[in-house]
Write a protein that binds this DNA or RNA. Structure first.
Lengths: 158, 158
DNA sequence: AGGTTTTATGAATAAATATACAAAAAGACT
DNA sequence: AGTCTTTTTGTATATTTATTCATAAAACCT
């Protein structure tokens, strides 16, 4: 495994397990694991990994992008989307009985600004786009998402 | 509305509609709307609003993380509302898992003509306003209702 | 209203992050 | 092996963001 990959994997691990508030802090944590890197390198790593900075009561906190972690969840769910339809103000996803909650949860975890929220029943998910968003763009987003995750493009009528 | 609230609302609006890559950039955008503020103020606003920084192919991008900022205020509210957001045709109330039904029931019981009905999932309530109703008026109604319940008006960013 | 406390803000500056540039390391291909 | 190309990294520095300290504004009392 390349040095870069080793380091980035360790970074993911550390971000998931510790509260990291600055690049320099992470430099030290890495050093404890015998991985030497400078702040500049971490700055680049953060961009590549899509690390995001959030605010906590204790100041900044760097975490891995939720879209990434969301994708991990998705694999566990296993989508069975039957259809994705929409009118001018919302999108309706049809799925198998009992799957809607999981799909809605996944969509939520994507944390996309384009999406205001979701409501899930048993076999239907309602996706509410944000104001100012072109709804077909959001539909595209969802379809791409689902296809990516399910790998069953052909089965779907997308 | 206080100057701070006006500004923060405009910030939310701008972050949802434009790609903002730095504080200074937002200073200028705000100035175009006749809102004068310095970078220092925006730094504080970002922390309060729970704005997060993500990476795009075009560099940094600041976006709202309603879930995060919502959590900060959640404890202050009896219902545990995380956020109240809306687009041009409906309102989405986020809450903790299992609370949505109770909140929807409460909204129903208000028996307001402005509200056509509600749909509740597990952690999300959809409020459908009556035709021709000004949606922000209905949002105001809901927020006031929540504040009445919690009695913590000033602390909330609602 | 006037006095007191709390909250909000700006200017200056400290602290943190991103980047330009040069050099080293790693591959790729004879 | 050697040469060329690409990728990765560090140093130094530019840029950006957070904070300190002082002041102003707002809220809160009698």
């Amino acid at each position: 495994m390349s040095a870069k990959l080793t380091r980035q994997n360790k970074i993911k691990e550390l971000l998931n397990s510790k509260l990291v508030s600055s690049h320099e802090e992470l430099v030290k944590l890495l050093k404890e694991e015998d991985i030497i890197a400078t702040q500049a390198t971490l700055s680049r790593d953060f961009a590549e990994l899509g690390v995001i900075r959030t605010f906590t009561d204790k100041g900044a906190k760097y975490i891995l992008n939720s879209e990434e972690s969301g994708k991990q969840i998705a694999k566990l769910i296993g989508f069975e989307i039957l259809s994705v339809e929409y009118n001018e103000s919302m999108i309706v996803i049809r799925t198998l009985a009992g799957r809607a909650q999981g799909i809605a949860h996944y969509v939520d975890r994507l944390n996309r600004v384009e999406i205001l929220g979701t409501v899930a029943g048993d076999d239907t998910v309602l996706v509410i786009p944000n104001t100012h968003q072109n709804i077909s763009a959001v539909v595209g987003l969802i379809k791409r998402m689902m296809v990516e995750q399910s790998g069953t493009k052909n089965k779907l009528n997308l």
